[in-house]
C-alpha cells in the first residue's frame, strides 16, 4: 500500500511539473503583449518598455519560468496587470466561493444519485427504475442555466425563500452564505446527479450479474443483503471516476451558473482576465485548476485502492 501511495505521489508531482511548463509556454505564445495592452493604444514605446522591464517581461524565458515557479511555491502568484493587486488575493476571495459551491453541488449530486441508482438497479424494469431513468434523462437534457432561472423564478421571485443572486460573504455567517449557495448548487448538481445515477445503475446492474453474486445468494444471503455486502463496493469504481471528473468540471465550469446568480467565483475571474489580457491571472487560475484536478485524481486513486484490493497488489 505504501509503495502504491509513493508511486501515485511521484506521478502526481511529475504531472504538476509538466503542466506548469505547458501552461507557461502556451501563455508565452498567446498573442498580445500585456504591457502594451495595459498602456493603451497611444502609449509611448519607451513607457511600454519601462513597464515591460518592471513586469519582468524582458528577462530570458527559463529565468522567468524558474522565477514564476519559485513564486508559486511561496504562494506568490504575481501582481495582476489590470487590478494592480496580488493575484493570490484575487484568487483567494474567489476560491472561498467556488470551492464550497463545488463541494456543495457534489454532495447534493452524490446524495441524489446513490439512492436513485441503487433503487433503479435493484428493481430493474420496475416502475421505480423507469421513473429514475426518465428523470435522469430529463436531468441530462435540461440546460443548467435554464434550470437555474426556473429555480430563481420559483424559489426567489414567487416563494421568496432565497435571494435571486449575489453572495453575502462568509463574514455574514455560515447559514446565510450556505443559503445563498443553495440554488446555484442545486442547478449545478442536477445534471451531474443524473449522470452519476445512470452510471451507478448500470455499474450495479453489471455487478449484480456477476458470478459471485450467485455465490452470495447460494450462501443464504437475501437479495438485499447480497446487494449491500457484495455488489455495492464492486460497483463503485466507475462511479468514483465520474465523481472525480465532476469535481474538476464543477470547480471551473460553473461560470454560467455564476453569471446567472451573480456569484464572484473562479470561473468569472478567469473569464474577465481573458477578456482583459490579464495573462498573469489567467495563468494563475489555470495552474490552480490543474493543481486541483491532479490532487482530485490522486484522491480518486486512493479511493480506488480502498475500494478494490486488486489495485493495491504488490507486483512480484
Amino acid at each position: 500500500m505504501t509503495a502504491y501511495l509513493l508511486r501515485r505521489l511521484l506521478s502526481l508531482s511529475l504531472s504538476l511539473v509538466a503542466a506548469s511548463l505547458v501552461i507557461f509556454l502556451v501563455m508565452e505564445v498567446v498573442p498580445g503583449d500585456p504591457a502594451s495592452f495595459m498602456m493603451g493604444l497611444n502609449a509611448d514605446p519607451q513607457a511600454v518598455a519601462a513597464l515591460r522591464s518592471q513586469l519582468g517581461l524582458d528577462e530570458p524565458l527559463p529565468l522567468r519560468y524558474i522565477g514564476w515557479v519559485a513564486g508559486l511555491l511561496q504562494g506568490d502568484f504575481g501582481i495582476s496587470y489590470t487590478y494592480r493587486v496580488p493575484v493570490s488575493e484575487l484568487i483567494a476571495e474567489r476560491v472561498v466561493i467556488s470551492l464550497p459551491l463545488t463541494l456543495y453541488a457534489l454532495a447534493l449530486s452524490t446524495l441524489i444519485a446513490f439512492p436513485a441508482g441503487i433503487l433503479a438497479a435493484s428493481r430493474r424494469n420496475s416502475a421505480a427504475d423507469l421513473t429514475v431513468m426518465g428523470a435522469t434523462q430529463l436531468g441530462v437534457a435540461i440546460p443548467n442555466f435554464w434550470f437555474a432561472m426556473i429555480l430563481v423564478l420559483i424559489f426567489a421571485v414567487n416563494l421568496r425563500w432565497f435571494s435571486a443572486g449575489g453572495f453575502p460573504g462568509w463574514e455574514a455567517g455560515f447559514w446565510p452564505a450556505i443559503k445563498a449557495l443553495t440554488l446555484p448548487a442545486i442547478a449545478l448538481a442536477l445534471p451531474q446527479a443524473s449522470i452519476l445515477a445512470r452510471v451507478m445503475r448500470s455499474s450495479l446492474i453489471d455487478t449484480l450479474n456477476e458470478d459471485f453474486m450467485r455465490t452470495a445468494r447460494a450462501k443464504g444471503l437475501s437479495r438485499g443483503q447480497a446487494l449491500w455486502r457484495h455488489a455495492l463496493r464492486n460497483a463503485l469504481i466507475p462511479v468514483l471516476t465520474i465523481i472525480g471528473l465532476q469535481f474538476s468540471f464543477l470547480l471551473a465550469g460553473g461560470i454560467i451558473i455564476e453569471n446567472v446568480f451573480y456569484l464572484p467565483g473562479l470561473g468569472r475571474l478567469a473569464f474577465q482576465a481573458i477578456t482583459q489580457r490579464d495573462l498573469i491571472v489567467v495563468r494563475s487560475v489555470v495552474i490552480l485548476l490543474v493543481f486541483a484536478v491532479i490532487v482530485v485524481t490522486f484522491l480518486v486513486d486512493l479511493a480506488y485502492a480502498a475500494a478494490d484490493p486488486r489495485l493495491r497488489r504488490r507486483r512480484s
Partner: peptide
C-alpha cells in the same frame, strides 16, 4: 448455505474480488 451448499463452475469469478 446451511442445509445446502453449492459450488460453481468458474472459480475465477465465483468469489467477491474485494
Amino acid at each position: 448455505g446451511r442445509d445446502v451448499g453449492m459450488i460453481f463452475q468458474e472459480p475465477m469469478t465465483a468469489l467477491n474480488p474485494v
